[in-house]
Simulated scan of single mutants.
Amino acid sequence: MSEPLDAIDARILDLLQQDASLSIADIAAKVGLSSSPAWRRIERLKKAGVIKQQVTLLDHEKLGLTFEVFASVKLQLPSRENLEKFEAAVTKWPEVVDCATVTGAVDYMLRVITKDMHAYDDFLRDKMLGLGLVSDVQSRIVMRAAKRTTAAPLELIAGDLEG
């Protein structure tokens, strides 16, 4: 980013993380600016890639998507080609809402959401194991989420923004 973030930028980001539907006028009032400067800051943050996208968060349970699993995935041979094939496949599977390459005994951690255990079994058999790349999957069924957020922890950089 060409211009460093300041405390007002951080406050704008915090407000947008809490409610992206706020109007420019509402954001401006909450950060002590008029609408035009607030809009310019938001546009600058978008152009810089700090604001990647604005989305609506849905209640999975109310949609009937109540089965959540963290799956540890080990590939048979974690070569560059197999890693790329697996990652390309994961991007096409709507059940996978998060996928990360990790260190340790497994190659990937996936967060998978489906309707029920049977849908997860179908996903596992037909999609993940159907690739022919996976040697082991350890599934951890989520009983209850103790914390869930999509917000970046802006307070960790707050000291950098003062001054």
Rank of each mutant, 00 (worst) to 15 (best):
Q76K: 13
V112K: 06
K62H: 07
S35M: 11
L15H: 14
G159R: 13
R44M: 12
P78Y: 00
G159Y: 03
R148E: 04
W39Y: 13
D160P: 14
P153L: 07
L83G: 05
D126Y: 11
T103L: 02
L15E: 13
E81V: 01
E95R: 15
K85V: 01
Q53H: 14
I24M: 08
D19Q: 11
R144M: 07
D26G: 15
E155D: 14
D121R: 15
R41F: 02
L124D: 00
E61L: 14
S35G: 10
I24W: 04
L16G: 09
Q138G: 06
D98I: 10
T91F: 04
R148Y: 04
V50Y: 07
T66V: 09
I141G: 08
V69S: 07
A20V: 08
P4N: 11
K127R: 11
L58P: 00
E87G: 06
G104N: 03
L15S: 14
V112F: 02
S34H: 09
K115P: 01
D9K: 07
L22K: 14
V96T: 15
R41P: 01
Q138L: 08
R148Q: 05
A145Y: 00
L77P: 07
T66K: 13
R11G: 00
L133C: 00
E162W: 06
K52Q: 12
L75C: 01
E95F: 06
D6Y: 14
Q18N: 13
S23Q: 09
L65V: 14
E68K: 13
A29T: 10
S21P: 02
V55A: 15
Q53W: 11
A10G: 09
G104S: 03
E68A: 11
Q17T: 12
P153Y: 04
V90N: 02
S2N: 12
A20S: 12
D121K: 15
V55D: 13
V96Q: 10
K92T: 12
K127I: 01
V97Y: 03
K62A: 10
A28K: 08
K92R: 14
D6E: 08
I42C: 11
A89N: 07
H60T: 07
R41H: 08
I27A: 13
F86G: 02
Q54S: 15
A89S: 11
A48W: 01
P4G: 13
S23E: 07
I8A: 09
Q18W: 07
P4F: 12
T66S: 09
K30I: 03
L124T: 06
A38T: 05
N82R: 05
N82I: 01
T149K: 15
V73F: 02
K46S: 15
L131P: 03
D9Y: 00
D122P: 01
H118Q: 14
A29W: 03
M143G: 06
K85N: 04
M117K: 15
Q54C: 15
D98P: 02
S72K: 06
L57G: 08
D59M: 05
S35Q: 13
A38S: 06
W39G: 12
L129V: 01
V137G: 01
V112D: 08
L15W: 15
A48Y: 03
M1S: 12
R125V: 14
A29V: 09
D59P: 00
C99E: 07
F67R: 13
C99M: 11
P37Q: 04
E87Q: 11
A88G: 09
A71N: 04
Q53N: 13
A146E: 10
